[in-house]
């Protein structure tokens, strides 16, 4: 009984569970980020009159879409996976199973839903003539792979720690909000004072926000060197998360 064999069952269960009881079913997966997008567009475009620097700058809405959807996948995966071990206490106490699959399921489900939403809205924007480089979409989707690895690494560590530190689930929501505002999701690097621009690279999500835009909007350059660094960071996060999870896994049942 291994993770790979069980994962499809748990991911399917997670997907069903997430939208069970809601009227729109899976539609909600698309609706929720759309609503979010509407709110942010209103605030930034209508109220703050946000303008992107540069002569070839895209419109603000495509700019936001391309950065916000990957972020939604990343943060939703982490937020949901953090409590996954605690939520499955009943199962853990009754059935012997590889517990990492309980963390994998919400992560994978979040990415699948948000990637589907991403494809839909990017195609919609391209059809609406918003300057999307649609040919690059398959390449852009590959960026989700290291992003998922990064999120899963964080999720493993957080889910294991959550068993011992119950406040974590509350804290993580705020921490993710902070991380979002400290990455160029709503602004560009050029909007920051020159001294702070380099600090942006400390945030692992910065690379993804900038690279998605470079690929799909032609806004900024795509740097292969930074891609390698991002992949390395993702693998280190996974290794660290996996180490912590393995270390604490035998003791979950004692503290649930």
């Amino acid at each position: 009984m291994n993770v790979a064999k069980l994962a499809p069952h748990f991911i399917a269960r997670e997907l069903r569970e997430r939208y069970r009881g809601s009227f729109t079913g899976f539609g909600w997966a698309l609706l929720q980020p759309l609503l979010q997008l509407a709110i942010y567009s209103f605030v930034f475009v209508q109220v703050f009159k946000a303008r992107l620097p540069g002569a070839d700058a895209p419109g603000y809405v495509p700019f936001l879409v391309v950065g916000l959807w990957p972020w939604a996948a990343f943060s939703d995966a982490i937020a949901r996976a953090t409590s996954s071990i605690q939520d499955n206490a009943g199962l853990i106490g009754k059935v012997a199973l590889p517990r990492a699959v309980l963390v994998l399921a919400p992560c994978a489900a979040s990415f699948l839903l948000h990637m589907a939403g991403f494809v839909a809205i990017v195609v919609a924007l391209a059809l609406a003539g918003k300057g999307i480089l649609l040919a690059w979409l398959p390449v852009a989707l590959l960026l989700y792979v290291p992003l998922f690895v990064l999120a899963f690494g964080f999720a493993l560590a957080l889910a294991a720690l959550q068993v011992f530190v119950r406040d974590l689930a509350q804290v993580i929501g705020q921490a993710l909000m902070l991380m979002m505002f400290l990455s160029p999701v709503f602004y560009t690097r050029a909007n920051l004072p020159a001294d702070w621009q380099g600090a942006l690279d400390l945030n692992p999500f910065t690379f993804y926000a900038e690279s998605f835009r470079s690929l799909l909007l032609g806004y900024g350059d795509f740097d292969l060197h930074r891609l390698l660094v991002a992949c390395a960071i993702a693998l280190v996060a996974l290794a660290a998360g996996h180490w912590l999870f393995r270390r604490l896994d035998p003791h979950f049942e004692d503290f649930l």
Partner: peptide, 15 residues
């Protein structure tokens, strides 16, 4: 592990 402080100590011990 009745109190949350116990859990934190236990975490430190396990690590």
């Amino acid at each position: 592990s009745h109190r949350s402080a116990d859990r934190l100590r236990a975490l430190g011990r396990l690590l």
